[in-house]
Design a protein around this nucleic acid. Structure first.
Lengths: 188, 188
DNA sequence: ATAAATAATAGACATTTGTCTACGTTTTAT
DNA sequence: ATAAAACGTAGACAAATGTCTATTATTTAT
């Protein structure tokens, strides 16, 4: 069974007919991305959002000192892209690259709008994804006040599966702390 | 003209018929909230999202040391509520209270779903609001790595209008720094 | 198998930010 | 009008985190 089919049915009340799914799938472009290659580069316009079938990616920007600052990590069944660039068609401030060899399904904004319009089930899916995303980001924003230790604690509780996919210094950056601080925190 | 009517038409491609708006409006409950009163209290379930017609509110939680930690600030034309509690029907971890006397329009999740279903324009509205919200939160998440100074700089660039509505120590907490640090940063 | 690149840890030190107390000002309530 | 509460600033000090360098372990490429 197609992973996207499985994924969509997790979020819709009734199972999508196979026929409909076939039409849906035609709006997606399958792309393989090798480790270290970019899905999106700073300055580009994010024309597609990517549903991750296989692999792991990270979103980051380069700060004034030339350091990589990780904003998001993604694994299977997550969506990767720059919301701002995607909607506003402005050059992205972020890079998204593959941390492992990946397989992703790309979809354009036009296709999303079209599918939302034509398939209530797809509209419902996008709606629910939005809700889930809101919940996750609200938690992340609450963490702005946290100490390094509490950030790591929350990370382990909610996202420990990232730990198997990304090295510690990437996790540290994702949490907004240095690798040295994370190393100290973990030691305790 | 009703502020909600004006607001909705900002986000939809074609102006909503007055008739439709009247039906729409029936799903909202007008509520006045006096300064310092709660729209939502920790432990309660967030049954409604609030569209703010007039006034200013803040969302915060109480940390281990009993300190108020501000997560969000809201003014006219913003939506206030706890996404997680609203969707999952779990007790909220947050408080939302009025910083000024407010007038808000409450709407339940059922009403939102119903209106999305019945009025494509409303569905479109919710879709676009989601997009805007995603853009804003993505920026906020990127700020996790920022220094106190850079956080304040971004705040002034994007949300300086909050400065007229909330005192400095509330802004500081919203930025994830202490009032003392903010005071120092501003001095420069 | 070997060399090179990548990761994790440790310690010394610097910097940033938080904590606490005090004081003067402004706002609010009565 | 007056007292009380809330607010902003300041300085001294403490704590948390960042920076840098070195060292070792682990992984990757050839």
């Amino acid at each position: 069974m197609h992973p996207l089919f499985h994924y969509i049915n997790q979020y819709t009340s009734s199972i999508i007919p196979k026929e409909d799914f076939k039409v849906l799938l035609r709006h997606f472009i399958l792309k393989k991305i090798r480790k270290k290659q970019y899905l999106l580069q700073e300055g580009e316009i994010c024309k597609y959002f990517a549903f991750i079938v296989k692999g792991a990616l990270r979103q980051y920007y380069i700060d004034e000192k030339g350091m990589e600052r990780v904003i998001n990590l993604y694994v299977e069944n997550w969506w990767a892209g720059d919301h701002e660039s995607f909607v506003s068609l402005t050059p992205s401030a972020y890079n998204i690259d593959a941390w492992e060899d990946c397989e992703v399904l790309l979809i354009s904004r036009e296709s999303i709008l079209k599918l939302c319009d034509e398939y209530p089930a797809f509209n419902q899916l996008i709606f629910k994804l939005g809700e889930r995303h809101n919940i996750a980001t609200q938690k992340r924003i609450a963490s702005i006040n946290y100490t390094a230790e509490k950030r790591y604690k929350c990370f382990v509780e909610n996202f420990s599966f990232f730990a198997n996919r990304f090295p510690q210094h990437i996790i540290a950056s994702y949490l907004g702390i240095t690798k040295d601080t994370l190393s100290r925190v973990i030691k305790k």
